[in-house]
Design a protein around this nucleic acid. Structure first.
Length: 426
DNA sequence: TCTGGGGTCCTAGGACCC
DNA sequence: TCTGGGGTCCTAGGACCC
């Protein structure tokens, strides 16, 4: 530690969701393809061809229907079972090269390459890229640099520039400055719309200009401590180390936008009950219990006029991951915030103050039989694991066909890799 | 009548990420 | 008509305490 100066690589899957669909449907190669968010709402992944047609990230499907039609854009509902499984395959492939990997998101990983001999770094990157493509079918770009922020910039250029062949090492300085000058501030990791506007108002337009800023207090005032770290990272001083084992989660959220607005308390109750159950399952998978439960409901933020948003917070007497107990409290919370006369478009639950399940302190007057509840939940999870999700559930979540709020996905591909009934046919 | 200052904790909101 | 979901961190301001 500390003897070797750090060297990071960022492995970033290209248009990940689209690439996953292409692995199992090669006819999509070379065609414009988009993958939609929940409820087939917005485009959340676009192939290069779709980007070239001007389809923006997050564009609502109903606004791009005409282009979809005229250009024959291939449309897919998101298939998270497939993407999650493909992600695992990519990460396992990387682990064949080094154990020092931080899985940063479903389609990105940081690698620590500090201990590698510096002369053949780019060749090493190319081997990783070729192996991932060969073993999983997923194309990736790789950026290499002294800090994570610089590796992100390198990866961004590697993805766009044909010349790099998908791998760019920015440790060599003339190349570094040129790349920074070519990087718009809005494309820097950690710079969003607000900071981008602020920087441009002050004539800081690219990453090189930001790196060379000498008035730190003015940055600190507007962008806080993260702003200062950002500049350091651009200067090659690493502020964000590799995090090999992920820190424990601080909260678990389950929320959905309803395709059709929901008016009645009983409909919202069913949705909330379902979210409680989904979230409780996640809690148990993490071997955690929640100390605080929050319930929220809201009307559409795109609608003019009467809006309503509210959140109910409930401190649980004893932290728990028991579905029926959580449902009881969620119902109370919901009834506190529910108002008649609104069209609700979205609702959700949040579990907070998570802690390991083996650290619960019971209160003296706790009358619930906790051992029995733990056994019941284990049985429930096992049955749903074996026979299929949703085999056993609580009646309060509603029966399959009376859920008006339930999501739609009209363009779903099959779960090629995770469901025996949906394997690829040849 | 004159009425301090420092510390902690909590929460809401803003900013960012994918 | 139709507009995603799940996270993190930081900061400012209020409540409260001594």
């Amino acid at each position: 530690m500390g003897l070797v100066s750090p060297l990071f690589a960022l492995v970033d899957c290209n248009n990940f969701y689209v690439s996953c669909e292409r692995v199992f449907n090669p006819r999509l190669e070379g065609k414009p393809v988009i993958v939609l968010s929940n409820n087939d709402g917005c485009a959340v992944a676009r192939s290069n061809e779709a980007k070239a047609l001007g389809i923006k990230m997050g564009a609502p499907l109903f606004k791009i229907r005409d282009r979809v039609k005229t250009h024959g854009i291939q449309v897919y509902s998101s298939n998270y079972a497939l993407y999650g499984d493909m992600s695992q395959r990519v990460m396992k492939t990387i682990l064949n090269f080094t154990p020092d990997i931080e899985i940063y998101s479903i389609d990105e990983a940081f690698l620590d390459l500090s201990h590698l001999s510096r002369c053949d770094i780019t060749a090493y990157g190319r081997r990783i890229k070729a192996t991932i493509k060969k073993w999983t079918g997923i194309p990736v770009s790789i950026g290499i640099a002294k800090t994570k922020t610089l590796a992100k910039i390198a990866g961004g250029i590697a993805k766009k520039s044909q010349k790099t062949g998908g791998v760019l090492d920015l440790t060599i300085s003339p190349c570094l400055d040129r790349s920074l000058a070519l990087t718009d501030v809005k494309d820097i990791w950690g710079v969003g719309p607000a900071y981008s506007r602020f920087l441009k108002e002050n004539n800081i337009n690219n990453a090189l200009q930001l790196r060379n800023v000498n008035n730190n207090t003015f940055i600190k005032k507007k962008m806080g401590v993260p702003g200062l770290r950002l500049i350091q990272e651009l200067q090659g001083i690493s502020c964000y180390p590799l995090e090999i084992s992920p820190p424990p989660k601080k909260g678990i959220t389950v929320s959905r936008t309803f395709k059709h607005p929901v008016e009645t308390l009983s409909e919202v109750e069913k949705a909330i009950a379902t979210f409680i159950s989904m979230g409780a399952k996640k809690l148990r998978k993490e071997r955690s219990v929640a100390g605080v439960l929050m319930v929220f409901i809201m009307t559409s933020r795109f609608r003019k006029g009467h809006q309503y948003y509210n959140m109910g917070t409930i401190r649980l007497p004893v932290p728990t991951s028991d579905t029926s107990e959580l449902m009881k409290y969620a119902g109370k919370g919901l009834r506190k915030i529910f108002r008649k006369g609104y069209n609700y478009k979205k609702a959700g639950i949040i579990y907070k103050e998570l802690r390991p399940e083996n650290q619960i302190q019971t209160v003296f007057f706790d009358c619930k039989d906790r051992n029995r509840s733990v056994k019941l939940m284990q049985t429930l999870d096992e049955i749903n694991e074996k026979i299929g999700p949703g085999t056993l559930k609580y009646a309060s979540a509603g029966l399959i066909n009376d859920r008006q709020w339930q999501p739609v996905s009209n363009y779903r591909s099959r779960s090629y890799t995770t469901n025996w009934d949906q394997l690829l046919e040849i």
